[in-house]
Design a protein around this nucleic acid. Structure first.
Length: 494
RNA sequence: GGCCCGUUGGUCAAGCGGUUAAGACACCUCCCUUUCACGGAGGUAACGGGGGGUUCGAUUCCCCCACGGGUCACCA
């Protein structure tokens, strides 16, 4: 296609260490990763920590940890240096300084002495007049005398880029196609803050060029940043990379996922905590705003690398569909070993108090049996808790459809017969394997069979018509509880 | 509000001028299962945001409108 990379593909994921790995950022990372690997290119991670105040301790590490968890690996970053480091922006200050001097010397940037109050007042005025707030250019062309005076006053300047007038900036976006902006729409923007640290748009342009980035694949929210970066490239005489802006992931109300939005689990770490599989999450995220050519939806990481084509990135936003994620996860869960499945569930069973923090052998056996029994029902690890609730609940609640089952006049007879069978079999006869024979005996005695036989028992024991395999359910419930529930239900039916 | 982007079933989404407009999730039905689930087979569901063009013919191309979103920081 038109954007076929000419040289070596080199892409980057550039997180700010302001928190944990967000689902949206993970997607950006994954698509960059897939793009790089598909083209046999390089994938690098650069830490954009220029907003020193917002950096959080452990943020960077958490990002990298969960990227690894997802199965994303990189060629260069803070832990693996290539020849274009350092990989943290705050460690690259000397590099930006060099170009700031050039820009200043050539008059392409200038010192702006505006105070925050001045700027604020300016904004208010513009807003009051119904204008779009933009820097007025107040200090754009001040006289040397004026400047000397401001310096004498002790004012510390920020450095602004002088936006050219009457220009048009067009780029061919990998996903959106041609996009054009006019320079009038941009005020002179700050490239170096008063504290001497570059702003995002400036640092990104310098770094992407110096790190020889060939393609910049990022979220749609960066579209309006692109012309600013283009201006920097032009001012410094650099060839810009190819840009591609992916649509955002939105919530059910079609709004950009906000970190505070509680309707959706947003951080990769949380999915790990809930007992989701990294390979399932990777698969699901890759399908968010991108689609493969065929009809298949389940892919390993290697397959995705093979088939990933940036041209198939979607143009319209994708709603995050937890139901689909659950389906994919459940699918992956089916092929996981019993050990891994148990591992996924154990923390949740402990947290919910189903088993002790240091479970003994008997509890472990119970947990293993529970997980095996619920295997087909589980969509993610934490679901073991609600799904196993019926095994520990003191009182059962019969739902409406199940109540109809109990209305059958033969039910008390069946329940009574089953209770007697269990008692007659004794403790040692109460096994998963033995259950079949006991139920068979009830059939012989009462003549009930099929649904008429199983449903009354299931409902009496669980209150529901749906649930895991009955034999296993009965065993997990335990003899005492089973007898009690059988009696209780029979009695309630009079 | 200015600028930018988007608009196919509840959700994801294929298609790139002529199709009965794929497929997946969810939902429903049936089969399998002496129960349940898994699995399998079907089904309901979009008249393509609206209006103009272009064309023999538009979901596919162009324009306008509406709606939705993004962005307008010394945050990234």
């Amino acid at each position: 296609m038109t954007n076929q990379p000419a040289g070596k593909v080199r892409v980057r994921y550039a997180p700010s260490p302001t928190g944990h790995l967000h689902i949206g950022n993970a997607r950006t990372a994954i698509f960059n990763y897939l793009f790089a690997r598909h083209h046999g290119g390089e994938f690098i991670i650069r830490i954009e920590d220029t907003d020193v105040k917002r950096n959080v301790a452990g943020g960077e590490e958490s990002q990298l940890t969960y990227l690894k968890w997802l199965g994303v690996d990189w060629d260069e970053s803070v832990d693996r240096h290539g020849d274009v480091g350092p990989y943290r922006q705050t460690e690259r200050l000397h590099i930006y300084d060099e170009f700031t001097k050039v820009l200043l010397d050539r008059g392409l940037a200038y010192r702006c002495y505006a105070t925050e109050e001045e700027l604020e007042a300016e904004r208010e005025e513009q807003l009051a007049r119904g204008e779009t707030p933009a820097y007025s250019g107040k200090y754009r062309d001040i006289t040397p005398e004026h400047e000397a005076q401001l310096v004498a006053e002790g004012r510390i300047p920020a450095i602004r880029f002088r936006v050219p007038e009457g220009r048009t900036y067009t780029f061919n976006d990998m996903v959106k196609g041609e996009i054009t902006f006019r320079s009038e729409d941009f005020g002179d923007f700050v490239i170096v803050k008063r504290d001497g640290i570059p702003t995002y748009n400036y640092a990104v342009a310098v770094d992407d060029h110096h790190m020889r980035i060939s393609h910049v694949l990022r979220g749609e929210d960066h579209i309006t940043n692109t012309p600013r970066q283009l201006m920097i490239y032009e001012a410094l005489g650099w060839e810009p990379p190819v840009f591609g802006h992916m649509t955002l992931i939105v919530n059910e109300s079609r709004k950009k996922l906000s970190k505070r939005d509680e309707s959706i689990v947003q951080f990769i770490e949380q999915y790990d905590g809930l007992g989701y599989l990294p390979e399932a999450l990777f698969n699901f995220i890759a399908l968010l705003g991108w689609s493969p050519e065929g009809e298949e939806e389940i892919f390993t990481r290697e397959q995705l690398i093979e088939i990933f084509k940036a041209e198939r990135l979607s143009k319209s936003p994708a709603v995050f569909d937890t139901a689909k994620l659950n389906w994919i996860n459940q699918h992956y869960l089916k092929s996981v070993s019993p050990e891994r499945l148990l591992e996924l569930c154990l923390p949740h069973l402990k947290k919910a108090g189903r088993i002790a923090e240091q479970p003994d052998e008997r509890e472990m056996a119970w947990a293993a049996a529970l997980v095996t029994l619920l295997r087909e029902h589980l969509r993610y690890g934490a679901e073991i808790v609600p799904l196993s609730e019926l095994f520990v609940r003191e009182r059962i609640e019969v739902d409406d459809e199940a109540r109809e089952v109990l209305a059958d006049p033969q039910v008390p007879t069946v329940l009574d017969a089953f209770a007697r069978q269990i008692e007659a079999a004794g403790e040692e006869g109460f096994t998963v394997e033995g259950m079949k024979a006991l139920i068979k005996a009830v059939q012989t005695e009462t003549g009930a069979k099929g649904k008429g036989l199983f449903m009354p028992i299931r409902v009496a024991l669980t209150g529901q018509m749906h649930g895991p395999d009955l034999n296993g359910t009965i065993w997990l419930l335990g003899r005492d509880r089973v007898l009690a529930r059988l009696r209780e239900t029979a009695a309630s039916l009079g």
